[in-house]
Amino acid sequence: MLAITTFLAIFVLIVQKSYDSLMKATVEAKKSNLIIPIDPNLDLTILDLIEKRQEFLPTP
């Protein structure tokens, strides 16, 4: 009985540790800053606002 219990305990421990090491790298990769997406869209409305403002050109 003790031998069977020991065997089962070691088996469960190995399964748990191997699953943990399997998932650990994936979870860390998901948390990584490299994975943050970039928004390629540029906000051009601010350019229109700036263009509407008055500018004085330098006098020669």
Partner: peptide
């Protein structure tokens, strides 16, 4: 145990690299 742990760590590494590569 050491063999299984090494194999699972390597598989996890491969999966994470695949995910990183895709992103």
């Amino acid at each position: 145990r050491p063999t299984v742990l090494t194999i699972s760590a390597l598989i996890g590494e491969i999966k994470s690299k695949e995910l990183l590569s895709k992103e």
